[in-house]
Design a binder for these strands. Structure first.
Length: 189
DNA sequence: TTATCGATGGTA
DNA sequence: ACCATCGATAAA
């Protein structure tokens, strides 16, 4: 069983601290993942797979370990890792990373759109296998449970009960965690 | 510092 | 007609 062929929430937890590597035409960019969200299956109304099998969602139901990249609000890309068994429409959205290599000083990598832009990820990467052909993940220092914080996923208010599930995970005190809109939410002291 | 608003295009 | 968003601008 591969790393990815497990429930999305498990993978979302273990991706914290992992390194995401993108290589293309001579450059190499690496971030340490600090924020993820699990989209756990067809029954999860916040998950795109809940729309059923369509050209867009097909990759979610396919083999684990592939990229699911989509365009949102007409201008931003979101990068996901397809998880769980083939036939299960589940994925993990990567929402923030700490720049480690190949990124200009000061570039922001908090938020799924900014992260994709910084790494050069686009629809061209959709459905790609995360296996070293310019796009892959590497193990990092494990992140202990004491450093993991959880909360509701961002921007899925339409999903009823599922909007409140604590499927957003992030590393406490990281400066590269995105901040959701709305009041009272403090995650950087 | 927080709040509001509009850009922009794939998807169904 | 929706959106798993961001950056500019305004208010304070």
């Amino acid at each position: 069983m591969s790393f990815y062929a497990r429930p999305a929430l498990t993978v979302a937890r273990e991706l914290l601290g992992a390194r995401l590597v993108v290589e293309e035409g001579g450059w190499r960019r690496v971030v340490r993942i600090v924020e993820t969200e699990a989209y756990v299956g067809e029954h999860d109304l916040a998950c795109h797979a809940s729309k059923g099998l369509t050209p867009r969602t097909e990759v979610l139901f396919g083999p684990p370990g592939r990229a699911y990249v989509y365009l949102i609000y007409g201008m931003h890309h979101c990068f996901n890792v397809v998880t769980d068994a083939e036939g299960v429409g589940a994925a993990v959205l990567v929402r923030g990373g700490e720049p480690l290599e190949g990124l200009p000083p000061g570039v922001r990598t908090d938020g799924p759109g900014r992260l994709c832009r910084a790494l050069g990820l686009s629809l061209a990467h959709n459905r790609r296998e995360l296996r070293g052909h310019g796009l892959y993940l590497e193990e990092g220092e494990p992140v202990s449970e004491a450093w993991v914080q959880r909360g509701p996923r961002v921007g899925v208010e339409y999903a009823g009960e599922w909007a409140r599930a604590p499927y957003r995970l992030w590393i406490r005190d990281s400066r590269h965690v995105s901040r959701p809109p709305g009041r009272g939410f403090r995650e950087r002291p």
